[in-house]
Computed example of a mutant assay.
Amino acid sequence: MVSAAGAPGAALLGPAEVRRIAARLGVTPTKKLGQNFVHDPNTVRRIAAAAAVAADDVVIEVGPGLGSLTLALLPAAAHVHAVELDPVLAGALPGTVAEVAGPALAAKLTVRHADALRTAAADLPGAPPTALVANLPYNVAVPVVLHLLAVLPSLRHGLVMVQKEVADRLVAGPGSRVYGVPSAKLAWYAEARSAGRVPPNVFWPVPRIDSGLVAFTRRDPPPDADRRAVFAVIDAAFAQRRKTLRAALAGWAGSPAAAEAVLRAAGIAPGARGEQLAVADFAAVSRAAARADAPAGAAAPRE
């Protein structure tokens, strides 16, 4: 029987339990999969509380690992879908939850051995997910968040732990020196805010960087705009972020002159730069291009 760490409330894993389970499974955290396991119960409680999961929320958790955060989410949520790429961890998680928290909470868990970047709504049986809560592998954090927001329109809110530098970018607004593609694309789907910093010493192994919590709430995207078309404008605008939009969008629009015409039609100064535009401005550029039938770039936008 695995003993549970922590005070009253959900049964959680402490450092000894995390290492004991990993040893039993023959698991060594790998950099390739971005595995850094949280072993501090207080941090897990803090993340679960900040996520504000309601009793009717169906949570999707990406990269549950040994189950530290999963155990904190199950008592609060109606159900948790855990998507895990590592087959050993995916196979062991239901047993760990049953052993630590009991069969009642284990019944609220569905584990899917899969790549989150290839996961769609049809892969998650039952009521659709309403919340994303995850300690995301740092190497795929932004693509995972954007992909899940795109394929799971049922998501209403979420909280993700990512590299602090990435967290700063995700919550940045126009005019910030770290505002860029991730900031603008996340803003298409949701309003994001910083929910705090997480120090390295709560992880095993200890990373060389701080982590940050990003909370988001779904909102309607800009009206009368196509997401893929808007994302193509964002990609082009930041591909050469030091250039003016007239120059940066030249390839996308067909020429500098065409880019200037589209920008003026959208009410955007051609001499502005990408970091000055909000997602609504990028949508305005996209709409102006569609009205002018400007030849948008052939390359598909990155999620």
Rank of each mutant, 00 (worst) to 15 (best):
G34I: 10
A296L: 15
D57L: 07
A284Y: 10
T43G: 02
I21L: 09
G14W: 12
V145Y: 03
K164P: 07
L277A: 12
I47M: 13
L148G: 07
K108P: 12
Q163E: 09
N36E: 06
D293R: 15
A299I: 05
A48D: 13
S154V: 14
P221Q: 12
A237W: 01
L149T: 08
P75M: 03
V59E: 03
S154K: 10
A23V: 00
P125Y: 12
A120V: 15
A229T: 08
L149K: 05
K31Q: 14
I268E: 02
M161R: 08
E303G: 13
V202M: 10
P128E: 09
A292D: 09
A48V: 15
T130S: 15
N135H: 06
A54S: 06
V44P: 08
S286T: 06
A288I: 00
V198Q: 13
V133I: 15
A11P: 04
A127F: 05
I234E: 11
P87G: 11
G158H: 08
V181S: 09
L73D: 09
W204I: 14
A237N: 01
P182W: 15
A225M: 09
A278R: 05
A16I: 07
P295S: 07
G63M: 06
L148M: 08
E191R: 14
G26T: 11
D56N: 10
A299C: 01
E260N: 08
H79Q: 14
A215S: 14
V53T: 01
A98I: 02
N36A: 14
A101C: 11
G63F: 09
I268C: 04
S211I: 06
L170F: 13
L170S: 13
G126D: 02
E17H: 05
A114V: 03
H147G: 11
E17R: 03
V58P: 03
N42F: 02
P128A: 14
G91A: 00
A114C: 01
A296G: 14
I47F: 10
A127V: 11
R264D: 06
K243R: 15
S255F: 08
R24A: 06
A90W: 03
G212M: 06
W188I: 10
P223Y: 07
G14R: 08
A250T: 00
A172Y: 13
L132M: 04
S154R: 13
R264Y: 04
T119N: 00
A122L: 00
G91C: 00
A290W: 03
A92T: 10
A248P: 09
V97P: 05
I209N: 10
D168K: 11
R177C: 14
L33W: 13
N135S: 08
A54K: 02
R264G: 05
V160G: 08
A11M: 01
V59F: 01
V83K: 05
L249F: 13
S68Y: 04
N36C: 13
K185H: 13
S176M: 05
F238Y: 10
A50E: 14
A229Y: 01
V100Q: 09
L159S: 06
P137D: 14
N42Y: 02
V58R: 06
V181W: 07
L69E: 03
A52G: 07
A253K: 09
F231G: 05
D115P: 01
A23Y: 00
R118C: 08
L33Q: 12
L25V: 10
G158N: 08
P223N: 11
A131F: 02
A257P: 02
S255V: 11
A225S: 15
T43Q: 02
T70F: 04
